[in-house]
Simulated scan of single mutants.
Amino acid sequence: MKIVLASASLRRQELLRQMGCAFEVLPSTVQEDNTLKLPTDELVVAHAKAKAMDVAGRSLDGTLVIGADTLVVLNGQVFGKPRSQIEAKDMLNALSGQEHKVVTGLAVIQCSSGHSWTDFSITQVKFGHLSQEEIDRYVASGEPMDKAGAYGIQEKGALFVESIHGCYFNVVGLPIYKLAKILKKAGVFLP
C-alpha cells in the first residue's frame, strides 16, 4: 500500500523513516486557521484532516495519506509558527518559566474508500526561565521560525526544556505510537 505524507516537515519525515515506513511526500496547500473557535484538540485534528483530504484529492486509489498539525498552548493561548522574529521572541518570552501543552492532531485517509482515522496527542512541557540574551541568540539562529511555539525540542530548543510529561515525539511533531495504532487499523503493520 502506498503511503503519502501531506507535509514538507523534515522532522515528520525523519520520524516516519524511524518507524520503518516507506512513504512519499506530497505537501498540502491548506493554510491552518488558528482563530477557529474550537477546543485545541479538535482544531489540530481538523487541520490534520483538511491537509490529508487536500492531498487525498490529488492521490490515487490504494494510497493512504497522513496529515498532521501541531500547536503549542499556554493558558488557552494558541501558538502556531511565528511569522516574524519579533513574534518568535514574544512566544519564547511567554513560555519562559511556564508549563505549556503541545497538541498534535493526526489524520489518515484511505483514498480508495474515503475512510479516515483521527487522533490527537497532548504533552506537557515545562520551560526553565530564559534570559532575553538566550532568546535573542536562539531567534537569531533561525531555528524557531518554522516551529509551533517557536522552538524545536529535538534541536537547540532542548536547552530550554526543564521537563516533559507525555510523548516526546509529539513535541517533535508526530506522535509515532498513536500513528502506528492508526496505521494498523488501516492495514499497515510496521516492524
Rank of each mutant, 00 (worst) to 15 (best):
D33H: 03
D33F: 00
N34I: 14
N34S: 13
T35K: 13
L38W: 00
L38S: 02
T40P: 15
T40Q: 15
E42R: 15
L43D: 01
A46V: 02
K49D: 12
A52N: 06
D54N: 15
V55W: 06
V55N: 05
A56C: 08
R58G: 08
R58Q: 15
S59H: 08
S59P: 10
L60K: 15
D61I: 12
G62P: 12
L64E: 05
I66P: 05
G67Y: 02
G67C: 08
G67M: 04
T70W: 00
V72E: 02
V72W: 03
V73L: 08
V73I: 06
L74D: 09
L74C: 10
L74S: 08
N75W: 00
G76H: 03
F79K: 01
F79C: 03
G80D: 00
Q85A: 13
I86E: 15
I86W: 08
E87R: 10
E87N: 12
A88D: 07
K89D: 06
D90Y: 10
D90I: 10
M91K: 09
M91T: 11
N93H: 14
L95T: 00
L95Q: 11
S96F: 07
G97Y: 09
G97R: 11
Q98M: 11
Q98D: 00
E99K: 13
E99A: 12
E99Y: 00
H100W: 03
H100M: 04
K101M: 11
K101C: 10
V102K: 01
V103M: 03
T104A: 04
T104M: 04
T104H: 02
A107P: 09
I109R: 04
I109T: 08
Q110W: 04
C111S: 10
C111H: 09
S113T: 15
G114N: 04
W117N: 05
W117M: 01
W117V: 07
D119A: 15
D119T: 07
S121F: 00
I122L: 09
T123F: 00
Q124T: 09
V125E: 02
K126L: 11
K126Y: 04
K126C: 11
K126Q: 13
K126D: 03
G128Q: 15
H129A: 12
H129I: 12
Q132W: 11
Q132M: 13
Q132K: 14
E133V: 12
E134C: 09
I135F: 08
D136S: 14
D136I: 03
V139A: 01
A140F: 06
S141V: 02
M145R: 03
